[in-house]
């Protein structure tokens, strides 16, 4: 099955950004656990996770924007394919 990477020469380096959510929400957990500061009276480890959610959405949005810019012809053919299925 060759449905993996599109054959065109394009950089996929920006996809590494998708590791950021894992570094933030997983790798950093032990390091933020003992922070006693309570922003808005909330436990810091909880605020950390919530900010991590927002960061994740931003990261995915950035990757999406870059992907979109790189693959306009594919998007066109997709519309055509979706069209004949309706």
């Amino acid at each position: 099955m060759s449905d993996d990477i599109p054959a065109e020469r394009r950089s996929l380096a920006h996809r590494w950004l998708l590791l950021v959510p894992f570094l933030w929400q997983v790798a950093m957990v032990p390091f933020v656990n003992d922070v006693a500061w309570r922003p808005f009276s909330l436990p810091f480890p909880m605020v950390w996770q919530m900010v991590g959610i927002v960061v994740t959405s931003i990261v995915i949005a950035i990757v999406f924007t870059i992907d979109k810019r790189q693959e306009p012809p594919e998007a066109l053919s997709e519309t055509a394919r979706t069209g004949d299925l309706h």
Partner: peptide
């Protein structure tokens, strides 16, 4: 605190899902 698992589950799944 273990309930924070909920905060990780969706965002990390979405990252892999992308």
């Amino acid at each position: 605190a273990p309930a924070y698992l909920a905060f990780c589950s969706v965002s990390l799944s979405a990252t892999i899902g992308y």
